[in-house]
Nucleic acid binder design. Structure first.
Length: 707
RNA sequence: AGCGGGAUGGGAUAGCCAGGAGAUUCCGGCGGGCUCAUAACCCGCAGACCGGUGGUUCAAAUCCACCUCCCGCUACCA
C-alpha cells in the first residue's frame, strides 16, 4: 500500500541524524543538515505543516571517556558541544523548529516510556552476559571503554564495533582480549544481567516496512540482507553512570544504550515543538502515534498507513542500519507510527579524496565561515552538487566556478538586471500584465518543484531557481527591453513586468536552498512580509509597484582567494601528515584512521630473548605483485647466505619497479606463513603505516646480523 | 577478496527505477551578437560509436547476463 503524495494534509516531521556531542562539525556533517533543512523548507513552501527537529546526542561512552580525560563532568562536556552546534546551525541558516538534546527531561521521560512499553508488551528479556570488567578499578567497561580483538575478523576493534576491521556491530561481551581504554588494564569478563530487545519479534514486520519505505535506494536495500537472516537480540543496557536510567527496578548503574535514547530524541524534540506552539498548530501525537494513539502489535496494519503524519529521516549513509532496522522495531514495539521515508546521503570528499579528520584533510564548518563566504553558497553547492545518495567532491576551485557561473552570472545577474531596469524606468513593477508565456514558465517551474518534492529529489529542488533565471536571461535578451522603452513603451513595460515576476518566483523557489539570499531578494522586491511565510502559489502574485534600487545578490569569488584557500588546505594536510601526532585532540570523528603513536612497551625482554631474534641485512632482488591481492608483493631477498622468498604488503606504498636493489633488514627466523598461496619465509622490516623501509647507512655485507 | 558507488563529448555531470524525438546542463575551446546587467547575458559551431561482449525487444544509455577498469570503506601488510 503506497502513501498519499506529498504534500499531504497531515503534519510532517523532518529529522536529521543527531550530531554527537563530541567534536566539531565539518563539511561532511553539514551535508545532512543542509539537505534536511532544504527538504523541510521545501515541504513548507508546498504548504505542508512541517516540523524540522533534531537535537544533540549526549550519551554514550565516547563522551564519558573524553570528558574523563579532560577531567570534567560528561554533562558539562556534552553541553559545551551542544551549545556550539546550536550556533553553527544558525550560522548556516539551518533552522530547526526545535533543537533539544538527549539528556533533557522530555527525552528522559519519553525514552523510559518507550522501554516500559516494550516491557509491557513482552519485547524485553533479561540475560546474563559476560561483560568486560576492570578488576583493579572495580568497574565495568562498556562499549568503548574496552578495545580488543574482533571475534569475527581478528582485527583490533572497539568494544561496540569493529571499526578497524569488518565494521560489524559488536554486542557487549563479544570482544576478545579486552583491554580498558581508561587504565590500560587488561579486562576480565564478568557475568552481569542485561536487558535485551527481542528484534526477532519484528522480523516479519521489518520486511514489510522496507517494502513500504520511501526515500533513497540505499536505505531500502542495504538492510535487506540483514533482515533476511536471523535477527539477534539487541542489548539495550550498559553498566555505566552516564545515560538514561533503565526504568523501574533499581538496577545498579544500568543505563540505556545510547542508540536507544538517541532516535527517541526525534520524538522528544517534536513533542517540545508541539508544546511550544500548541497542539492546535502542531500535534506531535498526530505524527508519531497512529491516529493519535498507540497501536500495539508486531505487524503493520495497512489501515494505519496515511492515518498519521509523515516521518522523514535524513541521515548519513553510515547509520542506515540504525534507522531502518533498530529504530522501526523500537517504534513498533512501543505502538508508534513508522518512518515514511529515510534519505541516506553520500559522503563528502575533498579535492577528489576521502575526507579524513585525523589527517586534517577536512574543511571545518568554522573554517568555511572564516573564509568569509555566505552560508547559502555552500548550501547551494552541497545540495545540488550530486544526487543525494552519491558522494560529493568539495574543492574550492569547483566551488568558485559554480558560484561565479550559476549564482553570480545567472541567478544573481538576472534578478539584478531585471529589478534595476524596472526600478530605473518604472520605480518598481511596471503597470502591465504578465504574459502567458512567462506565466506558463513559472507554472512549469512550480510543477517541477512539486514533483521533485514528491520524489525526494533535493538536488532538483535546489536547481529550479537557477534554471528559471536562465529562462529569464534568455527572455530579456530576446526581447531587448532597453531598445523598446522609447519606441514601444507598452511592450517594454510588459517584458519588464515579466522579468520582475520571474524574479519574484525565483525568490520563492530558491528559498529552501538559499534562505538568506532569498530573503534579500524578497526585500529588494519591496515585499513587506517574509519569504519564509510564502507558499508556492505566491510566485504568481503581483509584486509591489514600488521598490528601491536593488543591490547585487551575489558577489564573485576571486581567484586569488581560491588560491590562498587551496594553499592553506594543502599546507595543513602536509603538516598533519608529517607530524602525525599533531592535530589530535580536535579529532572527534568515529574515524578509524587515527595514527596515534603507540605507547612504548612496558614489559622488558632479556638479552637472551633478543638473541632469539635473527635480523639480517638483505637486498631485494626481485619484486612482483601477487595476483588477487592489492597490497601484497612477492619479494626475492638476497640474505648473503641464501635467497629467500618473502611476501610483504608494500604494493601500494612503494613503486614496485624501484624495489629491486633496495637494501632492507629482514627478520630471518620469522615463522613461515602462506599468503594468497605464496610462502613467505621471513619478514621485511618497515616503520609505520607508510611502510618506511629499514635499511643500512653504510655497506655492511649482505647477510650481516643486526644486533 | 568483501561491501558500496561509478564508467556518458577535453573536465564535471543529468537521463537509467516506469525502454522509444536531434542524449541534459555547467566549465573549457572556437565564431558571432547585445550593451539593461557583476568583462555579466544571448545565439551558433566543434566535440560522445553513452566502459566491453552477448541477450531480451519492432526499439536499449536505460532491462538481463557475463567481463574490464576506476573510486570509497574494509581485509590480506608473515
Amino acid at each position: 500500500m503506497s502513501h498519499d503524495q506529498l504534500p499531504t494534509e497531515r503534519p510532517a516531521v523532518v529529522t536529521c541524524g543527531l550530531p554527537y556531542a563530541n567534536g566539531n562539525l565539518h563539511v561532511g556533517h553539514l551535508r545532512t543538515y543542509v539537505d534536511g533543512d532544504l527538504f523541510s523548507r521545501a515541504l513548507k513552501r508546498a504548504g505542508q505543516n512541517t516540523a524540522f527537529v533534531c537535537g544533540s546526542d549526549m550519551h554514550g561512552t565516547p563522551v564519558a571517556v573524553n570528558a574523563a580525560k579532560e577531567g570534567v563532568d560528561p554533562k558539562e562536556f556534552a553541553l559545551r558541544h551542544h551549545e556550539q552546534y546550536i550556533e553553527r546551525f544558525e550560522q548556516f541558516n539551518i533552522a530547526f523548529d526545535n533543537y533539544g538534546h538527549t539528556h533533557d527531561e522530555t527525552n528522559t521521560e519519553l525514552t523510559q516510556s518507550f522501554v516500559e512499553s516494550w516491557i509491557e508488551n513482552d519485547h524485553i528479556h533479561e540475560k546474563e552476559i559476560e561483560v568486560a570488567w576492570d578488576a583493579e578499578e572495580e568497574q565495568p567497561l562498556p562499549d568503548r571503554y574496552v578495545e580488543g580483538t574482533c571475534p569475527y575478523c581478528g582485527e583490533h576493534a572497539r568494544g561496540d564495533e569493529c571499526d578497524d576491521g569488518c565494521q560489524r556491530h559488536l554486542e557487549p561481551g563479544e570482544i576478545e582480549n579486552p583491554v580498558s581504554t581508561v587504565t590500560g588494564n587488561p579486562a576480565e569478563y564478568r557475568k552481569q544481567p542485561h536487558k535485551f530487545l527481542k528484534l526477532a519479534d519484528f522480523q516479519s514486520y521489518l520486511q514489510g516496512f522496507l517494502n513500504r519505505l520511501e526515500g533513497t535506494d540505499n536505505a531500502r536495500n542495504q538492510p535487506r540482507e540483514w533482515i533476511e537472516g536471523e535477527l539477534e537480540d539487541l542489548c539495550i543496557t550498559r553498566d555505566m553512570d552516564w545515560g538514561i536510567d533503565y526504568p523501574g527496578e533499581s538496577e545498579e548503574d544500568l543505563v540505556l544504550y545510547v542508540w536507544v535514547d538517541a532516535p527517541i530524541e526525534y520524538v522528544s524534540s517534536t513533542k517540545q515543538y508541539s508544546e511550544r506552539v500548541g497542539t492546535d498548530t502542531y500535534d506531535w501525537e498526530q505524527v508519531w502515534k497512529i491516529g493519535g494513539e498507540s497501536q500495539h502489535g508486531t505487524e503493520w496494519n495497512d489501515e494505519w498507513t496515511d492515518k498519521s503524519g509523515e516521518i522523514i529521516h535524513i541521515i548519513g549513509r553510515d547509520i542506515i542500519q540504525h534507522h531502518c532496522v533498530f529504530w522501526p522495531a523500537m517504534l513498533r514495539g512501543a505502538g508508534y507510527n513508522e518512518p515514511r521515508g529515510v534519505l541516506a546521503t553520500g559522503f563528502v570528499g575533498i579535492d577528489g579524496k576521502a575526507l579524513s579528520t585525523s589527517r586534517n584533510r577536512a574543511i571545518w564548518a568554522e573554517e568555511y565561515l572564516d573564509a568569509g563566504f555566505h552560508p547559502d553558497l555552500f548550501r547551494y553547492y552541497i545540495a545540488t552538487g550530486s544526487d543525494l545518495e552519491n558522494d560529493i567532491d568539495f574543492s574550492w576551485d569547483r566551488f568558485a566556478e559554480r558560484v561565479n557561473g550559476e549564482l553570480v552570472g545567472n541567478l544573481g545577474n538576472f534578478c539584478y538586471r531585471a529589478l534595476l531596469f524596472a526600478q530605473r524606468n518604472y520605480g518598481g513593477t511596471p503597470d502591465a500584465e504578465t504574459s502567458e508565456e512567462i506565466t506558463a514558465e513559472i507554472e512549469n517551474a512550480l510543477e517541477q518543484f512539486r514533483e521533485a518534492l514528491r520524489e525526494y529529489d533535493i538536488r532538483a529542488i535546489g536547481n529550479i531557481a537557477v534554471e528559471l533565471a536562465a529562462v529569464g536571461n534568455e527572455y530579456i535578451q530576446r526581447n531587448e527591453p532597453w531598445n523598446l522603452v522609447d519606441d514601444q513603451p507598452e511592450k517594454a513595460a510588459q517584458v519588464i513586468r515579466d522579468c520582475v515576476q520571474l524574479s519574484k518566483a525565483c525568490a520563492i523557489l530558491m528559498q529552501p536552498v538559499m534562505p538568506g539570499k532569498a530573503e534579500a531578494l524578497w526585500t529588494s522586491l519591496g515585499e513587506t512580509g517574509a519569504v519564509v511565510e510564502t507558499t508556492l502559489g505566491d510566485a504568481l502574485e503581483t509584486p509591489p509597484t514600488e521598490f528601491a534600487e536593488p543591490t547585487e545578490l551575489f558577489s564573485k569569488v576571486e581567484s586569488e582567494h581560491v588560491e590562498s584557500l587551496n594553499e592553506e588546505l594543502r599546507e595543513r594536510v602536509e603538516a598533519a601528515e608529517q607530524d602525525s601526532t599533531a592535530g589530535e585532540g580536535e579529532d572527534s570523528e568515529a574515524d578509524s584512521t587515527d595514527v596515534d603513536l603507540e605507547p612504548l612497551e612496558e614489559e622488558r625482554i632479556s638479552f637472551e630473548e633478543f638473541q632469539g631474534v635473527d635480523m639480517r641485512v638483505g637486498e631485494i632482488l626481485d619484486a612482483e605483485p601477487i595476483e588477487g591481492a592489492d597490497k601484497l608483493l612477492k619479494l626475492d631477498v638476497d640474505l648473503g647466505v641464501e635467497t629467500r622468498q618473502v611476501v610483504a604488503g608494500l604494493r601500494e606504498l612503494h613503486e614496485v619497479d624501484s624495489l629491486p636493489g633496495t637494501r632492507v633488514i629482514v627478520l630471518a627466523n620469522m615463522e613461515k606463513a602462506e599468503l594468497f598461496g605464496h610462502e613467505s619465509n621471513g619478514m621485511v622490516l618497515a616503520a609505520g603505516e607508510e611502510a618506511d623501509l629499514l635499511t643500512t647507512h653504510e655497506d655492511a655485507p649482505l647477510g650481516t646480523r643486526v644486533k
